[in-house]
Amino acid sequence: SAVVMEEGSPGEVPVLVEPPGLEDVEAALGMDRRTDAYSRSSSVSSQEEKSLHAEELVGRGIPIERVVSSEGGRPSVDLSFQPSQPLSKSSSSPELQTLQDILGDPGDKADVGRLSPEVKARSQSGTLDGESAAWSASGEDSRGQPEGPLPSSSPRSPSGLRPRGYTISDSAPSRRGKRVERDALKSRATASNAEKVPGINPSFVFLQLYHSPFFGDESNKPILLPNESQSFERSVQLLDQIPSYDTHKIAVLYVGEGQSNSELAILSNEHGSYRYTEFLTGLGRLIELKDCQPDKVYLGGLDVCGEDGQFTYCWHDDIMQAVFHIATLMPTKDVDKHRCDKKRHLGNDFVSIVYNDSGEDFKLGTIKGQFNFVHVIVTPLDYECNLVSLQCRKDMEGLVDTSVAKIVSDRNLPFVARQMALHANMASQVHHSRSNPTDIYPSKWIARLRHIKRLRQRICEEAAYSNPSLPLVHPPSHSKAPAQTPAEPTPGYEVGQRKRLISSVEDFTEFV
């Protein structure tokens, strides 16, 4: 048969007729292969192709491409040299491709048809291009793949890379869960390890502090508590009631339409708007009261037996805890006409967050109470924005700035309102402590230090009264110190430094 060459192609190359033996071998191979691939376009007849790359030819070592076609129900084999250009295909004639002069020997084609199974398996396991790669995943090629499931790999992101949580363990979102698992493993320790309690022994800490320079003076030496005195035992138990972190309780009120001037209507609300609910979820963490331990979680007086509701929101960081007394989460009882059960919590909070959804101005004093010092007013606006402002009593104007209003988005509203309420509550605590000038409020841990110092002074006084020969370590507060001759004046800087060093040991009130 003659071949018409394309323009620009090399000279004529004689194409030899395939021997009958080659056709029989390739026909047997075509019957084993699956003929249901995917359909081509209507211009080209339905056909199945599979590209198999052999590394070497037997005796020649030339890479070839073998295409199996099922045109007219008769499979045909096409061998081509890759750099050459194939002729145009037609549905009426068999596929013809040019070969190099080196394939002119018909014996070479017979060798190609009689490829060993080793070469076929190696060509099938190679990388296939384009559409033949999808075909190689079918059941027909499963014989050339190794048996057994593939090893499982770690989760992959859409980009093909490992997620960040699997790369950096410290930033993994499941870090707290692993800590819980470690605690569970520790709890399952053997009885021999049960006595080993991690941490620092208080006796060891005391020993280090006792021999430090801070205890060089007799006034700073630790003293032993009497065991037989019940009054001192009660004082030590009272110390446990003062937490070592700051605590805040903040009221949250929802004002519906037409309720801006009605205290009873505001306290009777059992739910609010959708934006109000989203605002609550951002204030803190939802907790169930019956599962809380009052000595570990500050509840601000809420009952854990269901008297004040089942849930509330709280927030904490390293040095403070805040609980929100939310009116809509507290039960509304029919027998309580004046809502006294709610007001006994909300009316005693220094700061209230008022979500004013009424469309009218909310005035300070609508919720009557002796300790309502500051109101954080949240007014929802259009386009997911809110107006946040402050209202306070006249005696609080020096501590709280009420002249600045803020426009905040719904997303950042819980954070801004919480921070403003916490700052206002700190100012309210300082303002409330002014009624007792001898006990200015600095912080909870300073209050613990003052309680310890008062307890020490009482013990020293009782020891001096029981044994008059012992001198008083600290003179009583009601006694007057003996007159001392004025010492020589020293520079102001040295006096300030000495006073600062003494105050650092005794108390921190002056620095606050």
Rank of each mutant, 00 (worst) to 15 (best):
T247H: 09
Q370S: 15
V408K: 00
Y355P: 00
V505F: 09
M420G: 01
S443T: 14
Q241R: 13
S231N: 09
P491M: 13
V354N: 00
Y383N: 05
I242P: 08
A487G: 10
R456P: 15
V404W: 11
P491W: 08
T332H: 09
W445R: 07
Q237M: 12
T485W: 12
V236T: 10
V378H: 00
Q310F: 14
Y254L: 00
P437G: 06
L329P: 04
G365V: 03
E307G: 14
V400W: 15
T366W: 05
V430P: 01
R418W: 04
H451M: 14
H474W: 07
C340A: 15
L253R: 01
Q429F: 07
Q484S: 09
G284Q: 06
V236H: 08
G306T: 10
D246E: 13
R498V: 11
R448Y: 09
I266S: 03
P226G: 11
E257M: 08
L286P: 12
E510L: 08
V304C: 11
R498E: 15
S219A: 08
V495E: 15
S273Q: 01
F311Y: 10
K480F: 09
V252C: 02
S409H: 05
R456G: 14
N227M: 12
D291K: 15
D349H: 07
A447K: 15
G359P: 02
S352Y: 05
Q497V: 11
C340D: 15
P243W: 05
D217S: 12
G365I: 03
H375K: 03
T509S: 14
Q457G: 09
Q391I: 07
E257R: 09
L286N: 08
K290D: 11
V351P: 00
C292I: 12
P414I: 00
E488A: 13
T509N: 14
V351L: 01
L390D: 00
H338G: 15
K249M: 12
F373K: 13
P491N: 11
S262K: 06
Y254M: 00
S352W: 14
L501G: 13
E494Y: 08
L299H: 15
N261P: 02
G300K: 13
D308P: 09
A417E: 01
N386M: 02
N356M: 00
K337Y: 13
E384C: 09
G369L: 08
C460T: 14
N372P: 14
S466E: 14
G369I: 04
E288C: 12
N356A: 00
Y313F: 10
I353N: 00
N261A: 11
Q419A: 04
C292Q: 11
R456M: 05
D318E: 15
G301N: 13
E228G: 09
A427F: 14
F362P: 01
L449R: 10
L413N: 00
S466P: 15
T509A: 11
E494M: 08
E218S: 06
E263G: 03
Q237I: 05
